[in-house]
Amino acid sequence: MRLVVEGASRAFGGVWAVRDVSLTVEPGELRAVIGPNGAGKSTLFALIGGQLAADHGRVRFDGDPVERLPAHRRARRGVSVVFQAARVFHGMTVLENVMVGAHATTRSGFLAAALRLPAHRRDEREIRTAAMVCLERTGLADWAGRAAEELPLGRQRSLQLARALCARPRLLLLDEPASGLRAAERERLAGLITGLRAEGLTILLVEHDVAFVMRLADRVTVLDLGRVIAEGTPAEVRARPEVVAAYLGPS
């Protein structure tokens, strides 16, 4: 999917969290968004995913303006989100959590479910199979029957990713997916993200681990105080003095 953000702004209590941000992410591109704490990265993601409404500006998925659509309709248009905070569903198994991810791509409703109509059974079978595949990909297959809230935090993060993938997204927003992961898990995640990109998925990635980001990203957007202060390939961005000053620090 081609993502275009045009002049998006959002304020909280008179303070701009995101201010006049524009960016274009080409189909199949892996774009990293970096910036110091409070730079507005998560807020920008929320404006794209529909968790927050923009005060100004547009968001386009493949050319269509979506900024007025609620989050669940944007999900149907192909955007999936992995939130910074691990938001897993309690009182449900790991498998069921991932199955919720398929909501956007399936149809059967209350009536079909109540009466166990064939359409419902078919949907259930497909959803279950798709969810198991996503659990395999994220290394959670052995945990399928466990209660989601019992997972260690790192695994809850993977669970969110599995759920996001189960929606078969065309645009994936990853907000610090590697935080809290150990080195080996981090490597596994890097491999998975590379694989997803190779499948043609458009990915936005927020991550504080700069080495991790620079290795994976096609292009990098740098935010500071809600504004874009730089954009380019990893090598270009690294060479910009204002980025070093604002973010990378004298290392």
Binding site: A71, A75, S80, F83, R87, H90, A104, A167
Partner: peptide, 11 residues
């Protein structure tokens, strides 16, 4: 548990 995460999944 989470209206936000449910809505983000298309609910």
């Amino acid at each position: 548990t989470s209206e936000i995460a449910a809505a983000a999944s298309g609910v």
